[in-house]
């Protein structure tokens, strides 16, 4: 920590940002937020939608919680965090329902469940309530993008193996000739999510890209 204090704020902003993507990647290193990571990764579209939702909520809640950190009584901090997070999730779900109903339909209950996503509460408790707004913004973007990248990675494997093709927002990028006729639908189903996530975790550990904290 003393080392970090010596470097310039701009550099620290960058450090906090990059940290969330690899070193403390929420899904593969902290192993947090697995419920959405398993549930909504059946397609790239869902993963992007969920990722964008989490980035928005995390950013807003980190900013607010960091702003009120000096006047928040310790005794009620968790309820305060939950109320702040729930407010932004409700706003997000209203906006999704009004302007992008197909995404709202396919995310279903998991959109509302962002409230209890431990990543967001975790960042509020571990970071935003102790750090200035600027670094909290960097932290939110880093962790949020790290989460989105993880979701995309899992859904990439699941969509390609499970449907034999890859499409983004209804636009088909490619389709594998034999696989698309007899796709391994198993990967779209919930057990496939566990398998893909587990194998990716093992692969990253084996390659040494990620280490236990």
């Amino acid at each position: 920590m003393s080392q970090l204090k010596e470097i310039s704020p701009g550099k620290k902003f960058w450090v906090e940002f990059v940290k969330g993507i690899v070193v403390t990647n929420p899904v593969f290193v902290l192993v947090l937020g697995l419920c959405p990571a398993l549930a909504v990764t059946s397609s790239i579209d869902n993963a992007l939608g969920m990722g964008a939702g989490v980035i928005f909520v995390l950013l807003c809640s980190n900013i607010i919680i960091s702003l009120i950190r000096k006047i928040t009584p310790d005794m009620v901090r968790i309820p305060v965090f939950i109320v702040v997070i729930a407010t932004f999730v409700t706003i997000l779900s209203l906006v999704f329902e009004a302007y992008i109903p197909p995404l709202y339909e396919s995310l279903g209950i998991y959109l509302a469940l962002i409230v209890v996503n431990c990543i967001i509460l975790g960042r509020a408790e571990a970071f935003a309530q102790k750090n200035p707004v600027l670094y909290s913004i960097a932290d939110a973007f880093g962790i949020g993008i790290g989460f989105t990248v993880s979701l995309l990675l899992v859904s990439l494997f699941r969509e390609i193996l499970g449907t034999g093709s890859l499409s983004i927002f209804g636009f088909t990028l490619f389709s594998i000739p034999v696989l698309s006729e007899t796709p391994m639908a198993f990967f779209i189903m919930p057990p496939g999510a566990f398998l893909v996530l587990g194998l990716l975790l093992a692969l990253f550990r084996w390659l040494g890209v990620l280490k236990n904290e």
């Binding site: 006047i71 928040t72 009584p73 005794m75 009620v76 309820p79 305060v80 109320v83 702040v84």
Partner: peptide
Amino acid sequence: PLVFLVII
């Protein structure tokens, strides 16, 4: 704490 929570 109570007042703060109510305001929030």
